[in-house]
Design a binder for these strands. Sequence first.
DNA 1: ACGATTATTAGCCCTAGAGTTATAGGTTCT
DNA 2: AGAACCTATAACTCTAGGGCTAATAATCGT
Lengths: 116, 116
Amino acid sequence: MDAFGALADPTRRELLDLLSRGERTAGELGSVFPSVSQPGLSRHLRVLREAGLVRARRQSRHRIYSLRSEGLAPVDFWISKYRGFWETELDALESFLDAQGRAGARRPTRRGTRDR
Amino acid sequence: MDAFGALADPTRRELLDLLSRGERTAGELGSVFPSVSQPGLSRHLRVLREAGLVRARRQSRHRIYSLRSEGLAPVDFWISKYRGFWETELDALESFLDAQGRAGARRPTRRGTRDR
DNA sequence: ACGATTATTAGCCCTAGAGTTATAGGTTCT
DNA sequence: AGAACCTATAACTCTAGGGCTAATAATCGT
């Protein structure tokens, strides 16, 4: 399964979110998902591994997982082609709203993707 | 199926790529994929519609599809949390783009983020 | 109204994904 | 070596995704 497929599952996305805050052992990751069985979680981790999104190393009896963020680069590259689209559309929406009521001259500047 | 799931299929990603260059009728989109039956393509378009990634309107006998880029915003937002990672770790996006064949521009994608 | 055109839905298969229990693989401790 | 621990794999079931053909819907031209 490629990276796009791996990201389709919410559990796996949450695993990546956890790992983005630091490496964790498989057991620690599993304890966050009481609803998922241990083998089930191991399988999710395997999918993430084979998609190149995490790596695992062994330390004593544990397996320590860490993020391999480069694996997300193709996904980000793909979506970056669209990034301008909704920015300009939202800008258009904003100026429409300006025209509707607000006399405010707040010019919508091109900005990052994280507002909204 | 949510947007992440919709993007997991390569045919659907290609459909979005086509629509990013302008609206197309269902038939025009289908002609690009001779390997996929017409009902099969219609199903992909339905998935994209229900995921909020495209919209369709009717014009005479045709159904004209167009991109709804805002639907991609949640995906971009999710991945934006990781964007800094590979820049600081490896700058792997650049190597990815190099591997794609493009001569290495220091800032390959047009980006609106305001890091640094 | 009828036939032609364009696209969607319905009704099937068939495979892949995700979950489960049971088992195996390593590692550490005694 | 054997027990305890942590994680991965095997074998199986069940469901959802995706493909196909056939049928249905909507529109246009005559």
